[in-house]
Amino acid sequence: MEQPPQEVFGNWQHAYEEDAHGIAVYRPTANNSGSSQERERLEIHQDGTFSRIIPGRSEVPDVIKGEWEQKKDKLIHVSYESPGLAPQQLEIIESKPDILKVRKL
């Protein structure tokens, strides 16, 4: 299976204050700014698994599991296990050890 750049893999926390022009910015979870319970997180693994962790109504976040598949050079397709969730395309704009920028298509 083709894989995105190595830097894409890991645990990422949404740095929404850095978002601009339709591009979502994520930082490594270890470098969190603000409470991690208040921010969306992504876990992207080399084995093709994907998790989206979103703040829940209680203190326990909602974990949405899925799988990713590379479609083009910097485009990954995410399908979720939850029946009501539509698949999502993520275009990787930038990936470095300290930042991940994606455009959700």
Rank of each mutant, 00 (worst) to 15 (best):
N31T: 09
I23H: 05
P61D: 02
L42R: 12
N11R: 07
E81H: 14
D98N: 10
P5G: 05
Y16K: 14
I64C: 03
M1K: 15
R103G: 04
I64F: 12
V25C: 10
W68D: 03
P4T: 05
R41H: 04
E43Y: 08
V25I: 10
E17T: 12
K104M: 12
R39W: 03
V8P: 01
H14G: 04
K74W: 00
R41Q: 11
P28S: 03
D98E: 08
H21R: 14
H45P: 00
G56K: 10
G84T: 09
E69T: 15
F9C: 06
V78Y: 01
T49L: 11
N32I: 10
Q88P: 00
E2V: 14
R57H: 06
I53N: 02
S51V: 14
K72S: 12
I44L: 09
E18W: 13
S51K: 15
P97Q: 00
K104I: 15
E17G: 09
L100R: 02
A86E: 07
S58F: 07
V63N: 03
E17S: 13
G48F: 08
D98A: 06
Q13C: 07
Y26D: 00
G56T: 10
Q6K: 14
G10R: 02
N32Q: 11
E67G: 11
S95E: 01
T49Y: 08
I99C: 05
E18T: 02
V25Y: 04
F50E: 00
Q88A: 12
I93P: 01
A20C: 08
S36N: 12
K71A: 10
G10W: 02
K74T: 07
S36G: 09
I44V: 12
Y26Q: 01
M1A: 13
G48W: 09
Q89E: 14
E91I: 14
R41I: 03
N31L: 14
P97N: 01
I92G: 04
T49Q: 13
K65A: 09
D73C: 06
Q13M: 12
K96S: 06
S33T: 11
I44T: 03
G84M: 10
R103V: 04
E94K: 11
K65T: 14
Q37P: 04
E38R: 13
I76L: 14
G22H: 06
A30H: 06
E91D: 07
D98H: 10
P97D: 00
K104E: 10
T49A: 08
Q13T: 08
N31I: 05
L100N: 03
S95T: 06
M1T: 12
K96F: 02
S58G: 15
E59P: 04
L100C: 04
L90C: 05
I54C: 07
D19T: 08
Q46K: 15
P97I: 05
E91R: 14
L105P: 12
L105H: 13
Q13L: 15
K104V: 15
K74A: 05
S35Q: 08
P5Y: 00
V78E: 01
E17P: 04
D98R: 05
R41M: 07
E18P: 00
